[in-house]
């Protein structure tokens, strides 16, 4: 069977004869993992008093990132429409590196400032570590996105 090298929006797999559309594998894989995790969440009581509604929400929330993760792992970039052959030589790669470095500095500064302010606040007590970590992740994403867009506009 000849290899299909046609470029499409979602690309084709890196492996297998005939190079199947990457989404044809990523979509069912993501949905299966999402549903499985939803069921596990419901059975372990993580989803509260309405287990199956919680399981459905759990599955929906997990399915999208897992579909995209599987797609990113299996897709052959050379079969994507408009994808550069050498992305690391492109200016987008430099924007990414600069934005990531800047975001790291921002997060370190924000975390240091936050820790300093909290030590001065009387009765700040215990803080939920999950909230702190979510805050760090949100700040990283925000800083990276803003910096990347800024670099893109300047170019």
């Amino acid at each position: 069977m000849s290899e299909n090298t046609e470029r499409t929006k979602w690309g084709r797999t890196k492996f297998g004869s005939g190079r199947r559309p990457a989404m044809a594998i990523a979509l069912p894989c993501g949905l299966l993992v999402g549903i499985a995790m939803g069921v596990v969440g419901a059975m372990s009581g993580l989803t509260g008093p309405t287990p199956w509604l919680g399981a459905a929400v759990f599955a929906l929330c997990l399915a999208v990132p897992v579909v995209l993760l599987v797609w990113a792992i299996i897709v052959d970039r050379s079969t994507l429409q408009g994808a550069a052959k050498d992305p690391e030589e492109s200016i987008e790669s430099r924007w990414y590196t600069q934005a990531a470095a800047g975001a790291q500095t921002d997060v370190i500064l924000a975390a240091s400032l936050g820790a300093f302010v909290l030590t001065l606040m009387p009765g700040s007590g215990q803080i939920d570590a999950r909230l702190v970590l979510l805050g760090v992740i949100a700040a990283s994403f925000l800083s990276f996105s803003l910096r990347y867009q800024l670099l893109r506009r300047k170019a």
């Binding site: 550069a84 052959k85 992305p87 030589e89 200016i91 170019a155």
Partner: peptide, 25 residues
């Protein structure tokens, strides 16, 4: 961009003098 295997934005930025390409490029 297609000849070089990079994005069109890379060519735009090089032409404007806003991006110095790597030595291989």
């Amino acid at each position: 961009a297609d000849e070089l295997g990079v994005s069109r934005q890379t060519i735009i930025s090089i032409e404007r003098g806003k991006f110095d390409p790597s030595l291989p490029l």
